[in-house]
Design a protein around this nucleic acid. Structure first.
Length: 549
RNA sequence: GCGGGUGUAGCUCAGUGGUAGAGCGUCACGUUGCCAACGUGAAUGUCGUGGGUUCAAGUCCCAUCACCCGCUCCA
C-alpha cells in the first residue's frame, strides 16, 4: 500500500485519467475552489444523490415511533430575497473576522480574541480581564492556576487557551461540583474557573457586544493586524444595474429555502408534524482558502433535510436521524473505521442547538477526520427568526392535541461532493498481486458503470453474439461494450472505472451458449447462460441493496 | 491571508542558456486468444500565464495563476 501522502495523489491522478473529476476551466489555468465532474464522475455523483433521494425522501426507514416517516421535497432558487440572510444570521454571522500576528505570523479568529473574557464572580462582571490576569501572572510568577469547572460546561475545553494566554504557565483543570450555571443573555455561554483562590466566570459573548479586546498576540506577544472582515457569501446583483439596492447573494446553504417555504408546504401537501422537507442543490461559500481537492469547494452541492417535530419528541428524532444517516453511509460502502461519527462538544454547538453529531470521514489527505454531514438539533431557531423578520406566523397547529407551537427542527445536512469524495477514497484500492493493481471497489449501486460486455476477440462471430447482450443490458443500466485490445487491458480499464461485473463472450459461447462473468473484486470467473446475463446483473445489484436504475 | 514547495504529452516524470524527451496510457495494423501480452507504426506540447535579461530562455530575473504541505479557517 502506498503511503498516505501519495495515496491521495494517486486518487487525484486516477480521477483525472479516467474522467471522474477535472479542474474547472483548466485550459485557462483553472480557478481556485471550483471543480468539474467528468463522464464517470457525473454518474457517481448522480447515483449518490439518487440513492439519498430514494432512501431518505421516497422510502425512508420506519420511524422511531414505528410509523411511516413523512417526507416531501422542494427545489428552491439559489438567489433569494436578501432579507432571508439577515434572518438566518448569515449576513452578519457568516463572517470570520481575522487577525494576524505581525511577528509570528499566526492567525487568529478576531471574535475569539474579542469575545472571551474572565470575570471575577464575587464582583460580577467587569472586575477582571484576561489582560489583567496576564499582568497578575507576570507580577506573581510563583502562583499556579487551578481552574475548576462544572460538569456540562465547556471550561475544560478552554484550559489550553488560558494556558496559552498566560504564556505556558502551569494551569490545572479539575472538574468539581458547582452551582448550576446562571443563564446569561442570549448568545452568551458561561463557565466557572478558580484561579489563585478566586472564582471567575468565563464569558464567551457570541453577540459580539463585549468591549473586552486583546491587542497582543497570545502566542508571542507581537502586534496584531486590525480585524479584517470576511463574508463567506458570494454577492451578486439582480438586474442590469449594479448598486447596493439590488445586491443579492448566492445561497450559502439550501436549508433556508426549506424554512421560508415551510408554510407553503404545510398549506399545499396535507403533511402533519412530524414530517420532513428535503432538498438537493448547489450552495456557494467564498471560502478563505479552498483546500484538499474537492473537499472545500466554493461551489458545492448539499443534500439537506429539515425535519419538523414537536419539541418533546425532538431528541428521539435527532437520535433516530443520526443513526439513519450513519447507517446510510455504511450501507453504501463506508463501512470501514474511516467513518467516524463525532458528537459536537458544547463549545462547538451553536447557541440555539441542543445537540449535533458530525459524521466524519478519515480522508487520505488528513490525519484528522473531516465532516461529511452534520445532524443537528436546531431547536426552533430558524422558524422563529423568519417569523420575526418576515412578520409571518410560522407556528403550527396540531389538530389532535389542540396545541399551537413553532416546530423544533432536526437537520441532517450532507455534502454531496464530500460524499462523492469519500466514496472515491473508500473505493480506491491497490493490490500489487493483480496484473492491474489499481481498482475502484465501488458499491454496485454507486458504480458509474454497472457492467461491461466483451467479445473475447473481435472476430469469429463473437461480436455478433456480444452486441445483442450489450443492447439488452443498455436498456436498463449504464453498461459499456469494448471489443478492442487485449482482454486484460479491458478488464483493467473496467477495474479503474469501478465496474463490478464484466461479461465475456468466447469460443465456448458458440458451443454451449454460456458466457463468463468476472467479478471485479476477486477476479474470479463463473460461466452462466447468455440468456441469464440480465437476470444475473439484476440479482447482484438487488443483493447489494440497489434498486434497478 | 502568511511561509515553504511544485507546475514540461492524457498520467508519472527526466531535461548543463543552444533541435522538446522517456515510461505508461491512447489510436491504427498484425499476431495471440481470459487478465495492463508481443511486434510495427501513429497522434498528442500556449514547457501554467504575462513581462524582462540575452544573439538565444523549458532553463536566469520579476509578476501573476493553479495545485500541494504547514499555519489559519471550516457559523
Amino acid at each position: 500500500m502506498a503511503s498516505e501522502a501519495t495515496t491521495m495523489d494517486r486518487i487525484v491522478a486516477l480521477c483525472k485519467r479516467r474522467g471522474f473529476i477535472f479542474q474547472s476551466s483548466e485550459i485557462y489555468g483553472g480557478i481556485n475552489g471550483f471543480w468539474d465532474y467528468g463522464p464517470l464522475g457525473v454518474e457517481l455523483k448522480r447515483n449518490i444523490k439518487d440513492a439519498w433521494w430514494n432512501d431518505m425522501v421516497r422510502t425512508p426507514p420506519t420511524g422511531p415511533d414505528g410509523r411511516e416517516v413523512q417526507m416531501v421535497g422542494v427545489d428552491c432558487s439559489i438567489i433569494m430575497n436578501p432579507k432571508v440572510w439577515e434572518a438566518s444570521g448569515h449576513a452578519t454571522g457568516f463572517a470570520d473576522p481575522m487577525r494576524d500576528c505581525k511577528l509570528c505570523k499566526l492567525r487568529f479568529r478576531g471574535d475569539q480574541l474579542i469575545r472571551t473574557a474572565l470575570y471575577e464572580v464575587s464582583a460580577i462582571p467587569n472586575s477582571g480581564t484576561i489582560e489583567e490576569l496576564v499582568d497578575l501572572a507576570d507580577k506573581k510568577p510563583e502562583i499556579s492556576f487551578l481552574a475548576d469547572c462544572t460538569p456540562g460546561t465547556h471550561a475544560q475545553e478552554y484550559a489550553p487557551i488560558i494556558k496559552r494566554l498566560l504564556k505556558a504557565r502551569k494551569v490545572e483543570v479539575r472538574v468539581v461540583p458547582h452551582e448550576p450555571v446562571v443563564s446569561g443573555p442570549v448568545g452568551t455561554s458561561v463557565a466557572y474557573w478558580a484561579i489563585d483562590g478566586k472564582s471567575y466566570r468565563m464569558v464567551q459573548d457570541f453577540t459580539g457586544e463585549s468591549s473586552v479586546e486583546i491587542q497582543a498576540c497570545p502566542n508571542c506577544g507581537g502586534e496584531l493586524t486590525e480585524v479584517r472582515q470576511f463574508n463567506l457569501m458570494f454577492p451578486t446583483f439582480v438586474g442590469a444595474v449594479h448598486d447596493e439596492g439590488n445586491k443579492a447573494f448566492l445561497r450559502p446553504e439550501t436549508a433556508q429555502g426549506i424554512f421560508v417555504n415551510f408554510k407553503n408546504v404545510c398549506d399545499s401537501t396535507r403533511v402533519k408534524i412530524p414530517f420532513g422537507i428535503a432538498q438537493i442543490g448547489k450552495a456557494f461559500r467564498n471560502e478563505i482558502n479552498p483546500r484538499n481537492y474537492t473537499f472545500r469547494s466554493r461551489e458545492f452541492e448539499q443534500m439537506e433535510i429539515e425535519f419538523f417535530c414537536n419539541d418533546k419528541d425532538a431528541m428521539m428524532w435527532w437520535e433516530w436521524w443520526r443513526d439513519v444517516r450513519i447507517n446510510w453511509y455504511k450501507s453504501l460502502g463506508l463501512a470501514s473505521d474511516h467513518l467516524r461519527p463525532r458528537n459536537q462538544t458544547e463549545k462547538e454547538l451553536a447557541h440555539y442547538s441542543k445537540a449535533c453529531t458530525d459524521i466524519e470521514y478519515l480522508f487520505p489527505f488528513s490525519e484528522e477526520p473531516q465532516e461529511l454531514e452534520g445532524v443537528a438539533h436546531r431547536g426552533c431557531f430558524d422558524l422563529t427568526q423568519h417569523a420575526k423578520h418576515s412578520g409571518k406566523d410560522m407556528s403550527y397547529f396540531d389538530d389532535e392535541t389542540k396545541e399551537r407551537f413553532i416546530p423544533t427542527v432536526i437537520e441532517p445536512s450532507a455534502g454531496a461532493d464530500r460524499a462523492a469524495l469519500a466514496f472515491l477514497c473508500e473505493a480506491y484500492a491497490v493490490d500489487e498481486s493483480r496484473p492491474s493493481p489499481e481498482l475502484m471497489r465501488f458499491h454496485p449501486r454507486l458504480a458509474p458503470i454497472k457492467a461491461a460486455v466483451f467479445p473475447l476477440v473481435n472476430k469469429d462471430g463473437l461480436p455478433e453474439i456480444a452486441e445483442p447482450i450489450f443492447r439488452e443490458l443498455k436498456k436498463r443500466w449504464p453498461v459499456q461494450y469494448d471489443a478492442k485490445q487485449s482482454i486484460g487491458k479491458r478488464y483493467a480499464r473496467m477495474d479503474e472505472a469501478g465496474t463490478p461485473y464484466c461479461f465475456t463472450i468466447d469460443g465456448q459461447t458458440k458451443e454451449d451458449g454460456t458466457v463468463t462473468v468476472r467479478d471485479r473484486d476477486t477476479g474470479h470467473q463463473v460461466r452462466i447462460a447468455k440468456e441469464q446475463v440480465a437476470k444475473f446483473l439484476e440479482e447482484k445489484l438487488a443483493q447489494a441493496g440497489g434498486a434497478s436504475l
